[in-house]
Amino acid sequence: MNVIEIKGLTKIYKTSEVIVKAVNGIDINFEEGEFTAIVGPSGSGKTTFLNMLGGLDKPTSGKVIISGIDVWKLSSRQLIDFRMNNIGFVFQSYNLIPVLTAGENVEFIMHLQGKPKKEREKRTKDLLEAVGIGNRINARPSKLSGGQQQRVAVARALASKPEFILADEPTANLDSKATNSLLELMSQMNKKYNTTFIFATHDQRVMDKAHRIVTIEDGKILSDEYFERD
């Protein structure tokens, strides 16, 4: 079943001197439970593609339809609510809120969703235990390692029970051990919750875990391959 349908997605940046087609008419679908890597060289358009897919950057033309809703037809407020309820984000630099503890960072999005306190506390505890840092629930991000922070970011992304998670270079700032551990964790989450993961990455280790690799170059899909993984 398609979770995401993308039709003719285009992003054109105009400067006074040049016109750049960062994403050039991409058509692609993503199914529920996919573990997909969007790969390509720097400047190929993968982050722009991911941003448009996640409702962060408005396309010049084309459609992003998630669970039957054309997201770029939503108002600004509706779009923020839509992102909150349907999309989880994992960023390259973790981007946790520094004044909140690990637990509060995870709980924050559920607070925005208006979930009851008991439910928030239980899910926060469960998620942090699931990502392996249940004992650091009261630690501020500055007291956590990069790997631990990215685990909190994954827990935060899962907290709102989204349709899918977008991860932009999530392993770029991590060492090998932390990268392997994080990928293992995401893979488990993918299997356990059947959550769709879409990565933008150059990291071979991420590609090795992905079931589907979409290669983008000059804003166009160059290849779209499926792999059988354990």
Partner: peptide, 16 residues
């Protein structure tokens, strides 16, 4: 700036 962007990205309304 980045942190504010993240807060909006993950679902915080701008008025909040």
């Amino acid at each position: 700036k980045r942190e504010l962007g993240v807060m909006i990205a993950i679902g915080m309304q701008r008025y909040l």
